[in-house]
Simulated scan of single mutants.
Amino acid sequence: MILIGLPKGRIYKEIRQLLENSGIHLKEDKRKLIFGSSEKNIQFSILRGWDIPKFVSYGAVDIGIVGKDVLLETEEENFFEVLDLEIGKCRLSLAAKEKKVSELAGSTIASKFPKETNNFLSENFIDAEIIELKGSIEIAPILGISDFIVDLVNTGNTLKENGLKELKVIKEISTRLIVNKSKFRTKNKEIKKFIQRIKSD
């Protein structure tokens, strides 16, 4: 038996479609935290995306499906990133209301992604203050608490609607499949079979 953690939110429908295309049909039950599928040896649990690396690292679930944006920020290391599912594609980008990239030095940047934002600044030898926020990032420059934002961008419509411009793509993002390191050894046959089915789609 393998247990797979799926993320709530925007990419869930794409993941479900990918699984169905692979012949794996979920038997969802809103009353249950863990539910089965058309494959008797595969179970699923829907989790908060940001928590999936921790659940996988601790071995609570064998496999996790999660966005690369989450993996860039996690401190967990007890898993292998084994497959890019090439769904849920978007980009982590720098944006601002009126500022230019050349004005980054000494500025303030609001983001849900402080680790990757700091990496971007370090790689470009830029000193700036990072303000970590959990909610809507687009509001930060509008209310004047930051000069720039670093956030996920899909179509760019939300930025435009709020008078913001995408200035630079920092990282291309897609959905990844991760596996607990010890479970990859102890459940190698079942896990590899599942991965092969997903890859064959």
Rank of each mutant, 00 (worst) to 15 (best):
N21L: 07
G36A: 14
I126M: 02
S146M: 04
F44I: 08
K192E: 06
D201M: 12
K68C: 09
D147C: 02
N188D: 08
W50T: 12
I109C: 00
E86M: 04
E123I: 04
K199C: 04
S57D: 14
V70S: 10
K199E: 10
V150F: 04
Y58I: 09
D201K: 14
I137L: 08
G9S: 02
S182N: 13
V61W: 13
I87Q: 01
K187Q: 12
L143G: 03
D147V: 03
Y12R: 13
S146C: 01
A128N: 09
K100G: 10
I109W: 02
I145F: 15
I24G: 01
G106F: 05
E132W: 04
N188V: 06
K181V: 08
L94V: 07
P53T: 14
D201H: 13
S146H: 06
E132L: 05
F44S: 06
V169T: 15
K193V: 10
L94I: 07
Y58C: 09
K27V: 11
F194R: 11
T108S: 10
V56K: 06
G156H: 13
I178N: 03
P141E: 00
A60G: 14
E190C: 09
K189E: 13
G144I: 02
I198G: 11
L152I: 02
V169W: 05
K189R: 15
N188P: 07
Y12E: 08
N162Q: 15
A96N: 04
A96K: 05
I109V: 03
D151N: 05
L94Y: 05
N119E: 10
E116Q: 09
E123D: 09
S182F: 12
F184Y: 11
E103L: 08
N21R: 14
I4A: 11
I131W: 04
I195Q: 02
N124V: 07
I126V: 03
H25C: 06
T155I: 04
L71Q: 03
I15C: 07
K32T: 03
S111G: 00
D69G: 05
R91N: 02
L133Q: 06
K134N: 12
F148H: 03
F120A: 01
L33R: 15
G135N: 08
N188W: 01
I145Q: 11
I4W: 00
I137S: 01
E39Y: 14
K40N: 14
I24E: 05
K32E: 09
I2G: 07
V66E: 14
A128C: 05
A95I: 03
N124W: 07
K68N: 07
G49A: 14
K187D: 10
K187F: 00
F125R: 13
E123P: 00
K181T: 10
S38I: 00
E190P: 02
K115I: 13
L94P: 15
F125A: 08
I15K: 02
R197T: 10
I149W: 01
D29C: 11
Y12Q: 11
L159R: 04
L26E: 11
G23K: 04
F113T: 01
D69L: 00
S37E: 11
I87M: 00
F55H: 14
I65E: 01
T74A: 12
K183A: 09
K89F: 05
G64L: 08
I191A: 08
K97D: 02
K134Q: 11
W50M: 12
D29T: 06
L47N: 15
T186N: 12
Y58W: 15
E129R: 13
R48M: 13
L3T: 05
I2F: 14
R91D: 03
S102D: 12
V153S: 14
